[in-house]
Design a protein around this nucleic acid. Structure first.
Lengths: 131, 131
DNA sequence: TTTCATGCAAACCTTTTGCAGGATA
DNA sequence: TATCCTGCAAAAGGTTTGCATGAAA
């Protein structure tokens, strides 16, 4: 893959993910940028998210629950999916680093990677409940 | 939820998941059953999968990679998603049972559950590679 | 000036839903 | 016979793609 050409849209999209830190979805990014960039197209957001993911500038977080979220923090870390507000939050949790190796030991398949996320209720929604 | 009424289609769908043990998708179940049950509708497959899941007779396995798979083995266990053949396989791996509690300790969010799956290449596809 | 990126609309894929007819209890 | 379940088709939701135009190198 040859290097990407500069694109104002890609900068906008990347900066949104970088600054907002709320793991936005493609749609959330689009809706955030659209008012100030009326010409922006949702297809462009999707195309750039793919490229940014391939470049390794962002990671994609998938859950059972609807659409993918994006994160500019690319080191291995985990997320909590809030069932109430449908958002993703960072979880400070360090899993056994040997998880792949250990799964490999007990399997005849080739284990290369894993996906892990938590499900629950975020701080905000939890407090709203209590009121 | 009141008890479900008997349905020949639901039996067929459940037995397919139970016997095949290859974690079929809705579409796979539909295509397997359609030749011998030409009247069967994909909507019926989806509706029954939902009901079976709610009843607790099957579990749904979601991955980043397309559509959901179903499993009649309902105790907590893990799966490998094969990138090559797009199928899911059981992985004999016992994770730290305290994972939820440990994630909870380090978070202000309420952690209720988690999802984990492995990604790699299944035994079959691995061997095909070597040839 | 070549080639990549964009915007728009249409297509795609998986899953859900409305509705009239059919099966179950 | 009351209600649930089914089949069909249409719709929904997220994402991708074809194509002509516009921007970057």
């Amino acid at each position: 893959m040859q290097p990407l050409r500069f694109s104002a849209q890609r900068e906008l999209i990347f900066n949104t993910i970088l600054n907002d830190k709320d793991h936005p979805t493609a749609d959330a990014i689009y809706n955030k940028l659209k008012p100030t960039n009326p010409q922006l197209s949702l297809a462009t957001v999707y195309r750039n998210l793919r490229q940014l993911e391939e470049k390794g500038d962002v990671i994609r977080i998938s859950t059972q629950c609807g659409c993918d979220h994006y994160d500019a923090r690319t080191d291995k870390h985990y997320h909590l999916y809030c069932k109430v507000c449908d958002k993703m939050f960072d979880i400070d949790y360090t899993i056994d680093t040997q998880i792949i190796e250990k799964a490999q030991e007990q399997s005849q398949h080739l284990v290369e990677n894993y996906e892990l996320y938590f499900i629950g209720k975020c701080k905000n929604c939890r407090e709203t409940d209590k009121k």
